[in-house]
Simulated assay, not measured.
Amino acid sequence: MTSLRAHHVGITVQDLDRTLEFYRDVLGLSVLDTFSVSGDAFSTAVDVPNATGRFAHLDGGDVRVELVEYDPEGESLPDASLNRPGAAHLGLSVDDVDAVVDQFPPHVETLSEPQITESGTRIAFVRDPEGNLVELLEA
């Protein structure tokens, strides 16, 4: 059997430029590549007729963070709450959650102040400009 390894985590967004600015400028992830993909093979693979995707790949350490904006755009998912089956979030390890959160501009939405869980992990959840959840944790 072929060995599997994580390559990327993908997040579909409405506005690639605005969301990329958050992940790059607020969270500090480096941009590895930006590109577009279209054509019959892409449309068939993603099961979206006549699809075009604009992509940004960011350096998430051991895994890439892929932001993708589709044309045509689909309908938005319901509000992202962590306790919904199928809910997703991006977890990013940081050295000091409090220091990262303290440096956020005022417009960055946090779910709460940093917390220490029963397992002893310090965490904070924030939303990117499109409402996607990002967990910051001291792993």
Rank of each mutant, 00 (worst) to 15 (best):
N83Q: 13
S112Q: 08
D33N: 10
H8T: 09
D95A: 14
F35G: 02
V65M: 05
G53W: 03
T12V: 06
Q14I: 10
F104L: 14
V63R: 09
S38V: 06
P129R: 10
A124E: 03
D47W: 00
T34D: 03
D25H: 07
A87Y: 06
A87H: 06
N132Y: 02
P85S: 12
S93P: 00
R24P: 01
S3H: 06
R24I: 01
S38E: 15
S3V: 15
A124G: 09
T44M: 12
Y23Q: 11
V101W: 02
R5A: 13
D79I: 14
D128W: 04
V97S: 04
L92P: 00
V63I: 15
A88Y: 02
L133W: 10
D40H: 02
S119M: 12
D33Q: 06
T19L: 10
S3D: 12
P78W: 08
R54H: 09
L82Q: 14
T52Y: 03
E135A: 09
A87Q: 11
R54V: 00
H8N: 10
Q103L: 08
D33E: 14
L136A: 00
D47Y: 00
D71H: 09
E138P: 03
L20N: 05
P114G: 13
D62L: 11
V48H: 00
I11T: 13
E66N: 00
D71L: 12
D40S: 13
E118R: 03
T121Y: 07
V37C: 01
T19D: 12
E69H: 00
A99V: 13
S43E: 05
E130T: 11
Y23A: 13
A41C: 02
V46T: 12
T2W: 09
V68N: 07
L136R: 07
R122H: 13
T110F: 10
T12Q: 05
L77F: 10
M1A: 12
E109W: 04
F104D: 07
R122D: 04
G10T: 15
L32K: 06
G131T: 02
V26F: 01
S30N: 11
F35V: 02
S119D: 11
V94I: 14
V63N: 11
T52E: 11
T19Q: 04
A51I: 06
D71V: 10
I11Q: 01
D95E: 15
G10Q: 10
D25F: 13
A88D: 03
E21R: 14
A6R: 05
A80D: 08
E69A: 10
T12F: 02
R84H: 05
V31P: 12
A41P: 00
D25M: 09
P129D: 07
A45R: 08
A56C: 11
S112F: 13
D47H: 14
V94D: 14
S81V: 15
I116C: 06
L58F: 03
L137Y: 14
V126H: 05
F22S: 00
R84Q: 15
V13W: 07
E130L: 03
L82H: 09
D128Q: 00
P129Q: 08
P72M: 04
S93R: 11
L77D: 11
F104P: 03
T19G: 06
L137W: 02
L133R: 15
T110L: 14
H89Q: 09
T12I: 13
P114C: 10
H57S: 09
